[in-house]
Design a protein around this nucleic acid. Structure first.
Length: 211
DNA sequence: CAAGAGATCATCT
DNA sequence: GATGATCTCTTGA
């Protein structure tokens, strides 16, 4: 099957123009997964309609030794999914308001994940506007809590298999865009790990979180 | 525009 | 009982 060219077929008009990522993608080293996710597409099929966004910002949480990673606190009910096989969603609730979407990486028993921090809205924009109660395109999904709200992602999706679910990542044939690596956001408590440049941001995207 | 506070609850001590 | 992989609104320059 020939991959559709973005120049001929505007991807935004379709929800099935790419290839769903396989488990082998998620089984790679977490930092590599985080980088390669840039320019891929987050797809959420939903009774109210599909939502699609181009991933422009990610963070890697690399394992139990990483003090910013929830799994550094041990294996608990919350972190259980990260200890399982790659390619599942780890969704948790924080600050009493927001859900965070992570993709579990690497082998079973190596707890690690990539946090999706921002996407550029592509399809289902009206749906996102309704869910966010907000009009401005740039603010719909430019943050990990915002994008979960825009895509109706909550803890009911925790543990979902991204290789066999209504939530998945699609490759639309776009090469990994130019990106910048910076320290992760909001992990000042993580000792020397707070300075690791595990946040990856697409250069010249106006849809990244503003920090 | 930058800085600060408040909102609110699941999770772990 | 404290805190957090956040966001939004208010305040003041």
């Amino acid at each position: 099957m020939v991959k559709p060219s973005r120049q001929i077929i505007p991807a935004k008009e379709f929800t099935n123009v790419g290839t769903k990522l396989l488990r082998s993608f998620y089984e790679q080293h977490t930092v590599d997964v985080a980088k390669q996710l840039l320019g891929k597409y987050l797809v959420r099929q939903h009774p109210k309609g599909a939502a699609v966004g181009r991933i422009v910002e990610t963070e890697a949480y690399v394992g139990p030794q990483d003090l910013a990673c929830h799994a550094s606190k041990g294996r608990t009910a919350r972190t259980e999914v990260m200890f399982g096989p790659a390619g599942h969603a780890y969704v948790y609730f924080i600050y009493g308001f927001y859900n965070m979407l992570n993709l579990v990486t690497e082998r079973k028993d190596h707890p690690a994940a990539v946090l999706i921090r921002a996407v550029e809205p592509v399809t289902g924009i009206d749906l996102m506007r309704t869910r966010r109660q907000l009009d401005k395109l740039r603010d719909l999904a430019s943050g990990p809590g915002k994008l979960c709200q825009a895509f109706a992602i909550d803890r009911s999706l925790n543990g979902e298999d991204l290789c066999d679910a209504t939530l998945y990542i699609e490759d639309r044939g776009e090469p990994t865009p130019q990106f910048q690596a910076t320290p992760r956001i909001g992990v000042d408590y993580a000792g020397k790990w707070k300075d690791k440049r595990y946040r990856f941001v697409v250069r010249s995207s106006e849809f990244v979180s503003k920090v």
